[in-house]
Nucleic acid binder design. Structure first.
Lengths: 140, 140
DNA sequence: CTGTATCCTCTTGGATACTG
DNA sequence: CAGTATCCAAGAGGATACAG
């Protein structure tokens, strides 16, 4: 089984050596970094640094507002950095940071998992929907 | 760098051997399985099968409605199974399925990541908030 | 005990217009 | 180009009541 109470081993004993249980702050971080838009932004920036409109094009379904909000949040959490390139007309490039780079394997594993198990998921959904028909319909 | 177009290697060549790019369906699945409540439910059920009210207690901030919705969604995706135990008064136990079990390492990695990098994140946030003071306040 | 149903609030996020 | 500001609709989610 898995142990969900993680052991944090600090190089300085006595400072942070007790088992640290997951707090709301940990979950908040996970929510912010692994949400719908963040994941796609991080994918894109993992491939190559990109400018604002490049990202908009790479993620066709995102709106300007949501993209801006996502970029700000990722920047605040230290996952990406915002680099102002020129000044006529202004250009901005977003890059993944070294901290953000620690996500690469994780995101990779996530995407592989979804790809590997998608067929099984679809079978499960079909079975569920078959056994649990929608509750409307009083004519049958 | 990472390649976000995943190679699906089937044992039956010619059936599913072309590179499969991530579709909206993949992202939908990830969203449904790795969202706020799902993650905590899966954690709890990874530790041990639990009944409805046990889960409510294990996740104090979830409401009945959200918990029910999360459980249904996870069941539909084949991650957990719903087992009716007795019938006076009815008891229901939720268990992780073998498909859901494939998530264990992934969730483990996720939680470890959040714990390992939380200090760096907090430093990044402090710096960001320091450089970008809230825009209100016209008195200073 | 394990839900479903209803109401209602509050946030998320899309569309649009405007700015440096 | 790279945003900010505003408005508004739709949905998530909480509180409460009720049912099998």
């Amino acid at each position: 089984m898995c142990t969900w109470y993680l052991q944090v081993t600090s190089t300085k004993p006595g400072v942070m050596t007790e088992t640290t249980q997951l707090t709301a702050a940990h979950r908040e971080l996970i929510d912010q970094v692994f949400d719908k838009w963040s994941l796609q932004v991080l994918e894109a920036l993992c491939e190559k640094p990109s400018r604002f409109n490049e990202l908009r094009h790479a993620i066709p379904t995102v709106t300007q507002k949501s993209l801006t909000a996502t970029l700000r949040r990722l920047e605040r959490n230290g996952m990406i950095e915002r680099v102002i390139i020129s000044s006529r007309p202004i250009a901005v490039e977003y890059r993944i940071t070294s901290l953000g780079g620690t996500l690469e394997d994780l995101i990779d594993a996530l995407l592989h998992w979804s790809t590997a198990h998608m067929p099984a998921v679809q079978r499960a959904r079909a079975r569920f929907d078959d056994e649990t028909p929608p509750p409307h319909d009083a004519s049958s």
